[in-house]
């Protein structure tokens, strides 16, 4: 069926039938493009529509859970933007997200580089990659409480320090600080940074680096001028992923950030207290921030060229 439109005889046949069944002939001629409809419909139904509903709801007031067209106002947004706390939240959220993205990038890049350039054996490449994937099958909450066993008052670190006699009292500041949050975020997102960078590194022709070297570039220069530049699409995708998953995260900060307010957390708090319109208004703010960040990051690389080649 897929290529029917390319087949000469089928094309002629459908033309003769065109007067009788214009719709069928239209479908036959455009089947190649119409195939995009099922995924598109899924996305429109379960992503675009819900988002639009949030947008609409943010213009309502009170504790409604469904859009009410008779009760439209800008009060939520006025409230959101006139509160000084909003700006503190924005600063903290953006600050932590940017930090998480940068730290993850720094940790991930050498790993991705090693796997793609220094390991010639594809089997080994695959096994290392899968070793990075396997922990994701362990539930996130379980992985996350394991930090209690590591950094907690009676955790591994304190236990070791105390049995070595290095400290008398357990160090209580190890947990529930923004640094715990950062560690957990980096750990959870590492794979999603390594993966796109690895992907874009493997698309680079190694001869480009070789030529740069013979043209007088030191290994470091060849890396910055050629390899890193060409891996930017992967870097950008990784950064976007970390940004998005951290900007909208409402569980990790609640558990580990020791009271630090975050944008995702604020949305969840309002939803929890059934003030859905306010939750919606903060969601819109979250979305604007997210899109703004993506827009800025996309200035650094043309991602599309990786996909339409």
């Amino acid at each position: 069926m897929v290529g029917e439109s390319n087949n000469m005889s089928a094309g002629n046949r459908s033309e003769s039938k065109a007067q009788e069944y214009p719709l069928i002939s239209f479908i036959q001629r455009n089947i190649r493009y119409l195939l995009i409809l099922p995924p598109l419909i899924v996305v429109i139904l379960f992503l675009v529509t819900p988002s639009l509903m949030i947008l609409l709801l943010s213009f309502n007031k009170g504790s409604v859970t469904r859009f009410d067209p008779t009760n439209i106002s800008l009060d939520n947004f006025i409230a959101v933007f006139s509160r000084p706390s909003t700006y503190v939240i924005l600063r903290d959220t953006l600050g932590m997200s940017i930090l998480a993205a940068l730290v993850t990038l720094l940790v991930a890049y050498p790993v991705a580089y090693f796997i793609s350039f220094k390991i010639q054996n594809f089997q080994l490449q695959g096994i290392i990659t899968f070793m990075l994937v396997a922990p994701y099958w362990v539930d996130w909450s379980i992985r996350s409480i394991s930090w209690l066993s590591i950094l907690g008052e009676k955790g591994l670190v304190n236990y070791t320090l105390m049995s070595l006699g290095l400290v008398n009292q357990p160090l209580s500041e190890l947990l529930f600080t923004r640094w715990t949050l950062l560690i957990i975020w980096v750990q959870t997102n590492l794979l999603f940074m390594i993966f796109p960078i690895y992907l874009s590194l493997t698309l680079i022709d190694p001869d480009l680096v070789n030529v740069a070297r013979t043209l007088g570039a030191s290994p470091f220069k060849a890396f910055t001028k050629v390899t890193f530049r060409l891996s930017l699409p992967g870097v950008v995708i990784g950064i976007i992923f970390v940004f998005i998953s951290t900007l909208g995260d409402y569980v990790t900060p609640a558990l580990w950030a020791g009271g630090l307010q975050m944008l995702g957390l604020t949305v969840q708090n309002y939803a929890w207290h059934f003030n859905w319109p306010m939750a919606a208004a903060y969601s819109v703010l979250l979305l604007i921030v997210t899109l703004g960040v993506i827009w800025i990051v996309l200035r650094f690389a043309n991602i599309k060229q990786v996909f339409y080649r």
Partner: peptide, 20 residues
């Protein structure tokens, strides 16, 4: 002597023009 200090040029079969 590393490649960048040999004062040579190398043109591979694929030409390897820097696409960026």
């Amino acid at each position: 002597v590393p490649a960048h200090k040999r004062n040579i040029s190398y043109m591979p079969e694929t030409y390897a023009l820097f696409p960026h």
